[in-house]
């Protein structure tokens, strides 16, 4: 199985750094960035399989970023990360094509499971 390429997007720098290290230790290829705009630029530059995307960020927020990502790269799987359990955001995100939804703080096993699931989904969609 090929290595999953993950892009981690959150304005909390330390969160990106440490979660990134933990996911790398679990065999993923991880790059991190801190804004929706930067994430879009990275997605144009290199291919990724899954994006872990924080909903609440200054500037372009997660929902806006999700919209843009789906426009330019519909196959990339986006998992939304949010600090509060708002059903509205979850529903809105899924409607816009998010693969899944994670609540912060999340257990690493749950993160891994959802990322792997999203990766499977992408492979199926790619055919």
């Amino acid at each position: 199985m090929r290595v999953i390429r993950l892009l981690l997007v959150d304005d909390e720098e330390r969160f990106v750094e440490t979660l990134g290290k933990r996911l790398t230790a679990r065999g993923l290829y991880v790059e991190g960035t801190h804004s929706g705009e930067a994430a879009l630029a990275l997605l144009q530059a290199r291919p990724f399989d899954v994006v872990l995307l924080d909903v609440r960020m200054p500037g372009m927020d997660g929902i806006q970023a999700l919209r843009e990502i789906k426009k330019v790269q519909p196959l990339v799987q986006v998992i939304l990360l949010s600090g509060n359990a708002s059903i509205n955001t979850a529903v809105e995100g899924m409607r816009l094509g998010a693969a899944d939804y994670l609540l912060k703080p999340a257990e690493i096993e749950e993160v891994m499971a959802k990322v792997e699931e999203a990766f499977e989904k992408k492979r199926l969609e790619e055919g």
Binding site: T18, R22, S82, N84, P105, A106
Partner: peptide
């Protein structure tokens, strides 16, 4: 709650690491 979940999420990752 959202504001509080951010530091909690970082602590969660640090402790996990």
């Amino acid at each position: 709650a959202h504001d509080l979940n951010n530091p909690l999420a970082i602590m969660n990752e640090e402790a996990g690491w």
